[in-house]
């Protein structure tokens, strides 16, 4: 809150003195490293940075940062963070959540935080499993998944987190994964710099209860043919030498993956993350419904909208300017009054 320049910091300045207690080999370690490495680069102050989480493995995240933080209740982090961000627009508020926390018990709070465009950076660690309760299926687990609570296979259909966020018309929607630090840092930086609600799905491996869930996408040997990196203003191509491209089928209104050599370069869709209509981003999010299909990563949507806190505080300022600062004695006399001598 001072005018002096933001001090130069390094990763160690942003790490707390608490021992990290995730299972050895958990994907959360690499996400924590990416965040701790990014924070010194953002030009922000520790005291103005707050991490809020709910419950679950991911929710331990705030304990491992030397910022302000709150480890709250299951699913409620977006609600709690909303109150903080609206009442303290000077703060950088991050929400760290998981697939069960954000999409099951806290689904309502998530969609409304996104709908309102609250100035939050929301990182959803999606490992498609309940880890802290030792291995039940989650709302992103694939149908048929055998877990302790689904010994004959899950009959639930999973949520696609990005479809959900786009359905709520989130202004910033992105996906990254725990095997690519550089991509995580670039994506988190974009999310942080976005004014309004930024939603990032992080594909994260739970090596104890759902090991290798994303191996087909994020494994070093598979990545090139399985992940579709999105770059604003660029044709959406991937695979070795970009031999594959995403094509809009005008007749069916759907997206397909095609050999660029067959359809021609001009047929390949050019990515525009700033499109006002979230429809095309929704199609991109739906391009893949399992780890066996090529899956987009990067920023699907980034549009400008006034953020909720600015609108709330703008009304307060506008009314105060118009009426003058409130006078308590006058408030109490605002109804009919009479005097007894």
């Amino acid at each position: 809150m001072t005018d002096t320049a933001v001090p130069v910091t390094s990763r160690k300045d942003w790490a707390s003195d608490q021992e990290v207690r995730w299972c050895p080999g958990c994907g959360d370690y690499s996400i924590l490293a990416a965040v701790q490495l990014l924070l010194p680069e953002l030009g922000v102050r520790r005291e103005n940075t707050v991490f809020v989480s709910g419950i679950g493995c991911a929710a331990r995240f705030p304990y491992y940062l030397s910022t302000y933080g709150m480890h709250s209740i299951h699913g409620r982090a977006p609600a709690i963070a909303t109150g903080l961000a609206v009442s303290r627009p000077d703060l950088d508020v991050w929400v760290v959540t998981g697939d069960g926390d954000a999409l099951s018990i806290g689904g309502n709070h998530l969609i409304h935080a996104l709908r309102r465009n609250v100035n939050l950076t929301i990182l959803l660690f999606n490992n498609q499993i309940y880890g802290l309760t030792k291995g039940q299926f989650s709302p992103t687990s694939e149908s048929g998944k055998v877990t302790k609570s689904t010994p004959f296979g899950s009959i639930d259909r999973p949520f696609n987190p990005l479809s959900l966020a786009l359905g709520a018309e989130a202004t910033f929607v992105a996906r990254t994964h725990d095997m690519d630090r550089k991509h995580m840092m670039a994506t988190f930086r974009r999310a942080h710099d976005h004014k309004g609600a930024a939603f990032v799905e992080v594909l994260q491996n739970c090596n104890v209860f759902n090991d290798g869930a994303f191996e087909g996408l994020t494994g070093r040997s598979q990545r090139e043919e399985a992940l579709i990196p999105l770059e604003h203003g660029q044709p959406i191509r991937f695979g070795h030498d970009g031999h594959l491209g995403v094509v809009l089928d005008g007749r069916t209104g759907s997206l397909t993956v095609a050999e660029v050599a067959e359809v021609g370069e001009d047929a390949v869709l050019v990515h525009d993350e700033t499109r006002d209509d979230p429809g095309l981003a929704f199609l991109l999010a739906r391009l893949s419904s399992s780890v066996d299909q090529p899956t987009p990563v990067g920023v699907l949507r980034a549009v400008e909208r006034p953020d909720y806190g600015s609108l709330v505080n703008g009304q307060v300022e506008e009314v105060t300017a118009r009426r003058g600062r409130g006078d308590l004695a006058a408030l109490l006399r605002s109804g009919t009054t009479w005097t007894v001598d």
Partner: peptide
């Protein structure tokens, strides 16, 4: 929840 977040702030 929002009220509690505001209290923290």
């Amino acid at each position: 929840g929002a009220a509690l977040g505001a209290a923290f702030g």
